[in-house]
Amino acid sequence: MLRYATLRFLSLTLSLIVASVVIFAVIEVIPGDPAAFMLGMNASPDTVAALRADLGLEGSVPARYLAWVGGMLTGDFGTSYTYRVPVADLVAERLKVSLPLAAYALALSTLIAMPVGILAAARRGRATDYGIMGATQLGIAVPNFWFAMLLVLVFAINLPWFSAGGFPGWEAGLWPGLKALTLPAIALALPQASILARVLRSALIETLEQDYIRTARAKGLSRGQALRGHALRNALIPVLTILGLQFSFLLAGAIIIENVFFLPGLGRLIFQGITQRDLVVVESVTMLLVFAVIAVTFLVDLAYAAADPRLRRRR
């Protein structure tokens, strides 16, 4: 187990290092002079030079890369050119919205998908199954941002249950905060729940056809007992993989959904960064997003090993 975890950790750390090189290269090397790029065509050479000094762009490329990585490791993400504040502070502020949103959506998606997927597998080939499969088929096809607009239309404009956007801040209390995140979380969760339910259903159906289910039935377990006691845990192994992959979709989705609801999260920050050519912000936030995906991959790998005893010793 420890060996497996160490190997995965090393491999993912390598991925992280390569990812940082890629991001650094795209943002700081390809444009030539980032300072000139950020200021646009009309900037005077003096301002460009000043900004260059400001951003620490004077050194060689490897030295700058090391300084950037070293800074991030110690929590120094650089200073935003437009906001004139440390990017770390900006990110910390925005994470208070984005992280709860992604977690909220993940929880909703899992809570919806599990019973639905199990029900469909248990009622395989019957009307319930066809109904669920049809509904999830539709759920997958709906773009989350469009679904978000429809939710706003119904639950914020026609029925004044929720606000159409904005975030009161957690200072206003837990409930107003959660309420503001509810429609965005539903919009994010439903398409993902559809995918998850379908994966769970097909994984369950596949495990239900395994020999050990027949063995369990020969021991006297009922269909339901065999499903709960044996099929479910085995089916969770492929479901975990999907759950890990879904995190990156949720993260990307959250960035887009924040735009629909005007939520002050990482997504708004990064799009403002792009429009204002604030490369420091773009660079650091993308690195953070990639780090989050890789960290979740690692957690999923660990969960995988915990769920599957065959992995603990092998590899």
Binding site: R214, R233, N234, P309, R310
Partner: peptide, 11 residues
């Protein structure tokens, strides 16, 4: 049953 390799729950 015949196939002992698959007749037991692996987890």
């Amino acid at each position: 049953f015949q196939e002992p390799m698959t007749a037991l729950n692996p987890v």
